[in-house]
Design a protein around this nucleic acid. Structure first.
Length: 140
DNA sequence: GCCAACGTTGGC
DNA sequence: GCCAACGTTGGC
Protein backbone atom coordinates (compact mmCIF):
# COMPACT_ATOMS: atom_id res chain seq x y z
CA UNK A 1 0.00 0.00 0.00
CA UNK A 2 1.68 3.14 -1.20
CA UNK A 3 0.80 6.73 -0.49
CA UNK A 4 0.99 9.70 -2.82
CA UNK A 5 0.60 13.44 -3.11
CA UNK A 6 -0.96 15.14 -6.11
CA UNK A 7 -0.84 18.85 -6.79
CA UNK A 8 -3.23 21.19 -8.46
CA UNK A 9 -3.53 24.91 -8.76
CA UNK A 10 -6.97 25.59 -7.29
CA UNK A 11 -7.62 28.07 -10.09
CA UNK A 12 -7.38 25.15 -12.52
CA UNK A 13 -8.87 22.33 -10.43
CA UNK A 14 -9.70 22.71 -6.75
CA UNK A 15 -10.52 20.35 -3.90
CA UNK A 16 -14.09 21.68 -3.89
CA UNK A 17 -14.47 20.72 -7.52
CA UNK A 18 -13.02 17.29 -6.74
CA UNK A 19 -15.54 16.81 -3.92
CA UNK A 20 -18.35 17.93 -6.22
CA UNK A 21 -17.48 15.12 -8.63
CA UNK A 22 -18.33 12.62 -5.89
CA UNK A 23 -18.00 8.93 -6.63
CA UNK A 24 -17.78 9.61 -10.36
CA UNK A 25 -14.22 10.76 -9.74
CA UNK A 26 -12.10 12.82 -12.04
CA UNK A 27 -9.24 11.96 -14.41
CA UNK A 28 -6.00 13.62 -13.30
CA UNK A 29 -5.11 14.95 -16.71
CA UNK A 30 -2.39 17.26 -17.91
CA UNK A 31 0.68 15.60 -16.40
CA UNK A 32 3.52 16.19 -18.87
CA UNK A 33 6.50 15.17 -16.83
CA UNK A 34 7.98 11.71 -17.02
CA UNK A 35 8.75 11.32 -13.33
CA UNK A 36 5.20 12.28 -12.47
CA UNK A 37 3.90 9.94 -15.16
CA UNK A 38 5.88 7.02 -13.73
CA UNK A 39 4.32 7.69 -10.34
CA UNK A 40 0.84 7.67 -11.87
CA UNK A 41 1.63 4.33 -13.49
CA UNK A 42 2.61 2.83 -10.14
CA UNK A 43 -0.67 3.71 -8.46
CA UNK A 44 -3.06 0.90 -7.57
CA UNK A 45 -6.77 1.17 -7.12
CA UNK A 46 -7.63 1.99 -3.49
CA UNK A 47 -4.34 3.70 -2.73
CA UNK A 48 -4.60 7.13 -1.20
CA UNK A 49 -3.15 10.51 -2.05
CA UNK A 50 -3.02 13.91 -0.44
CA UNK A 51 -4.57 16.68 -2.49
CA UNK A 52 -2.32 19.74 -2.43
CA UNK A 53 -3.18 23.25 -3.57
CA UNK A 54 -0.13 24.79 -5.21
CA UNK A 55 0.44 28.50 -5.73
CA UNK A 56 -2.82 29.57 -4.10
CA UNK A 57 -3.13 28.30 -0.54
CA UNK A 58 -0.02 26.12 -0.63
CA UNK A 59 -1.61 23.56 1.64
CA UNK A 60 -2.68 19.94 1.80
CA UNK A 61 -6.46 20.13 1.91
CA UNK A 62 -7.79 16.62 1.55
CA UNK A 63 -7.39 12.91 0.90
CA UNK A 64 -8.44 11.15 -2.25
CA UNK A 65 -8.33 7.62 -3.52
CA UNK A 66 -7.30 6.00 -6.79
CA UNK A 67 -10.54 4.88 -8.45
CA UNK A 68 -9.05 3.83 -11.78
CA UNK A 69 -5.48 2.90 -12.54
CA UNK A 70 -3.39 4.52 -15.27
CA UNK A 71 -4.82 4.76 -18.77
CA UNK A 72 -4.00 7.04 -21.74
CA UNK A 73 -4.58 10.75 -21.10
CA UNK A 74 -7.59 11.76 -23.22
CA UNK A 75 -6.28 15.33 -23.36
CA UNK A 76 -2.96 14.25 -24.90
CA UNK A 77 -2.36 13.63 -28.62
CA UNK A 78 -2.92 10.11 -29.94
CA UNK A 79 0.11 7.92 -29.44
CA UNK A 80 1.73 10.07 -26.79
CA UNK A 81 2.97 8.40 -23.61
CA UNK A 82 0.96 10.44 -21.11
CA UNK A 83 -1.46 8.78 -18.73
CA UNK A 84 -4.08 9.70 -16.14
CA UNK A 85 -5.56 8.02 -13.06
CA UNK A 86 -9.08 8.73 -11.82
CA UNK A 87 -9.38 10.02 -8.27
CA UNK A 88 -12.34 10.32 -5.92
CA UNK A 89 -12.38 12.59 -2.88
CA UNK A 90 -12.40 10.65 0.42
CA UNK A 91 -12.23 13.24 3.20
CA UNK A 92 -11.09 16.78 3.81
CA UNK A 93 -8.45 17.50 6.43
CA UNK A 94 -10.07 18.92 9.56
CA UNK A 95 -7.23 21.42 9.49
CA UNK A 96 -5.29 21.97 6.24
CA UNK A 97 -1.56 21.38 6.56
CA UNK A 98 0.32 24.25 4.98
CA UNK A 99 3.68 24.15 3.26
CA UNK A 100 4.94 26.23 6.16
CA UNK A 101 3.70 23.56 8.60
CA UNK A 102 5.46 20.85 6.61
CA UNK A 103 8.73 22.79 6.62
CA UNK A 104 8.44 23.39 10.36
CA UNK A 105 8.01 19.69 11.17
CA UNK A 106 11.37 17.88 11.39
CA UNK A 107 9.73 14.52 10.66
CA UNK A 108 8.71 15.85 7.25
CA UNK A 109 12.06 17.29 6.21
CA UNK A 110 12.53 14.66 3.49
CA UNK A 111 9.20 15.22 1.80
CA UNK A 112 9.51 15.83 -1.92
CA UNK A 113 7.04 18.65 -1.52
CA UNK A 114 9.96 20.56 -0.03
CA UNK A 115 12.89 19.00 -1.87
CA UNK A 116 11.44 18.71 -5.36
CA UNK A 117 8.78 21.33 -5.37
CA UNK A 118 8.13 21.09 -9.10
CA UNK A 119 7.15 17.44 -9.15
CA UNK A 120 3.36 17.34 -9.42
CA UNK A 121 2.79 13.67 -8.54
CA UNK A 122 4.97 12.36 -5.75
CA UNK A 123 5.27 9.38 -3.42
CA UNK A 124 4.77 9.88 0.33
CA UNK A 125 6.28 7.50 2.91
CA UNK A 126 4.13 5.66 5.46
CA UNK A 127 5.64 7.70 8.29
CA UNK A 128 5.04 10.97 6.45
CA UNK A 129 1.46 9.95 5.73
CA UNK A 130 0.77 9.30 9.42
CA UNK A 131 2.42 12.54 10.48
CA UNK A 132 0.48 14.70 8.05
CA UNK A 133 -2.79 12.96 8.97
CA UNK A 134 -2.14 13.63 12.64
CA UNK A 135 -1.38 17.28 11.91
CA UNK A 136 -4.49 17.54 9.76
CA UNK A 137 -6.78 15.93 12.30
CA UNK A 138 -7.82 12.89 10.28
CA UNK A 139 -7.41 9.14 10.67
CA UNK A 140 -4.52 7.81 8.58
C1' DG B 1 6.62 40.35 -10.57
C1' DC B 2 10.83 38.00 -9.73
C1' DC B 3 13.74 34.23 -9.73
C1' DA B 4 15.51 29.45 -8.65
C1' DA B 5 15.01 24.77 -10.02
C1' DC B 6 14.18 21.74 -13.40
C1' DG B 7 13.16 19.84 -18.05
C1' DT B 8 13.53 20.16 -23.00
C1' DT B 9 15.44 21.58 -27.30
C1' DG B 10 18.80 22.30 -30.69
C1' DG B 11 23.46 23.64 -32.37
C1' DC B 12 27.93 21.91 -32.53
C1' DG C 1 27.19 13.57 -26.17
C1' DC C 2 27.79 18.18 -24.33
C1' DC C 3 25.93 22.44 -23.09
C1' DA C 4 23.69 26.99 -23.83
C1' DA C 5 19.22 28.85 -24.49
C1' DC C 6 14.69 28.74 -23.53
C1' DG C 7 10.11 27.55 -21.32
C1' DT C 8 7.50 26.19 -17.24
C1' DT C 9 6.52 25.53 -12.44
C1' DG C 10 5.86 27.24 -8.12
C1' DG C 11 7.56 29.60 -3.88
C1' DC C 12 8.46 34.10 -2.28
Amino acid sequence: MAFWLIKSEPDAWSWDQQVARGKAGEPWSGVRNHTAKLNLMKMKRGERAFFYHSNVGKEIVGICEVAREAYPDPTAPEGSPWVVCDFVAVAPLAKPVTLEDVKAEPKLKDMLLINNSRLSVQPVSDAEWKTVCAMGGVRP
